[in-house]
Structures are given as structure tokens and as C-alpha cells.
Design a protein around this nucleic acid. Structure first.
Length: 177
DNA sequence: CCCTGATTCGC
DNA sequence: GCGAATCAGG
């Protein structure tokens, strides 16, 4: 089949009415949806009155695909140059990373806060292995809640997926509740 | 796995 | 110009 005036008109009409490419192809007959889409693009009416299409993909890279010719031979095109003119000025938003372990704050006696010396106003973030004699608490000022500002960030992060890699502080979250 | 449109590129 | 193959999503 070829794109006669009638068929092109029908294509334009159906496309304007919002039919999908496959629907149009089925109705016209003798063409695939790819043919319809290709024709639509060639006619320059790709974008329909669909405001909600925030689908903007970065340009696809060329497709270096081996092709089987009619005579049975195989042709392998050379990979097209990726063409990376200038890397976009990336504004990388640094993710709040594991955040360096905040060492326990030394008390007046030079020792970190323990279960015995921890006060209400002090950050109750546990530091170290609870089984370890040196186990202590952060001890910084807990201004809003049980933790200092820094540990509150970690403590109140959304729960991770169960089977994802364990965060370094997961055990602490379990302990600290 | 079904569908959608978008794109590339050999023909 | 055509459209299959492929892609990126829903």
C-alpha cells in the first residue's frame, strides 16, 4: 500500500481525533503502526494537543546493529561516534552521605556520656557496640527530640527496603528505636 | 507482556 | 519518502 491522498487525509483526521498509531494502522489497513508513526512524523504533526507530555528523553545513541543481507552475509556497521560536544554543566546535589561518624562528646570528666551520665537534654545517639565497655552516647545538645541536629537527620530518614544494602546506622536505629 | 510515541537509518 | 527495528516509558 502507498500513501495516497485519501489515506493521508484519513491519517491526518484520525490522528487529529486522538487515535493511536496502532488504531490508525488497523483502520487504514496495509500498514503497521510504525508506518503510521513514521508518516505522522514526516508530515510534521507528531505533537498532538496533549499538554501532558513531559516525556523528554536525551537523544538516543546510534544503533550499531549487525544486519543480515538478503544474500546471507552479515554487515556490521562501525559504531557511530557518541558525539559528546560539551558535558552539561551538571549541578550535582550532594546526597547527605553516611556522614562521618560523629564521635561522642566528652563530658566534663573527659569521658563520653554513658547510660549513667546521659541527661534528657543530651543526644541519645548510641555510639559503638552496646556490648563494648567503651559504648557511649553522642551527648551533644538535643534541641528538638532525643537527638542532636546531626543525628536527627540520620535517625529520621525514611526506612530502607528490607533487602537493600544495610546502612551503617541500621543497627543503631534498631537499638535506638 | 500489553501498550504508547520517538528515533535511527538502510532501503 | 518509507517503515522495521529499536528504544524509552506507562
Amino acid at each position: 500500500m502507498s500513501w495516497t491522498d485519501e489515506r493521508v487525509s484519513a491519517l491526518k483526521k484520525l490522528w487529529a481525533e486522538g487515535h493511536s498509531a496502532s488504531q490508525i494502522a488497523k483502520q487504514l489497513g496495509g500498514v503497521t503502526r510504525n508506518a503510521v508513526i513514521g508518516k505522522v512524523h514526516r508530515l510534521g504533526l507528531s505533537g498532538r494537543a496533549t499538554p501532558s507530555r513531559p516525556v523528554k528523553r536525551p537523544p538516543r545513541l546510534a544503533r550499531p546493529k549487525p544486519r543480515v543481507l538478503p544474500d546471507g552475509s552479515v554487515k556490521v556497521p562501525s559504531p557511530q561516534v557518541p558525539e559528546r560536544p560539551a558535558e552539561a554543566p551538571r549541578t550535582v546535589i550532594e546526597r547527605q552521605e553516611p556522614l562521618a561518624p560523629l564521635p561522642p562528646l566528652a563530658m566534663d570528666d573527659g569521658e563520653p556520656a554513658t547510660i549513667l551520665t546521659l541527661r534528657d537534654s543530651m543526644c541519645k545517639w548510641p555510639i559503638g557496640d552496646p556490648a563494648d565497655p567503651k559504648f557511649a552516647f553522642c551527648g551533644r545538645k538535643a534541641d528538638c527530640g532525643p537527638y542532636c541536629a546531626e543525628h536527627a537527620k540520620v535517625a529520621f530518614q525514611p526506612a530502607r527496603k528490607r533487602d537493600s544494602k544495610r546502612g551503617e546506622y541500621d543497627y543503631v536505629r534498631r537499638i535506638a528505636g
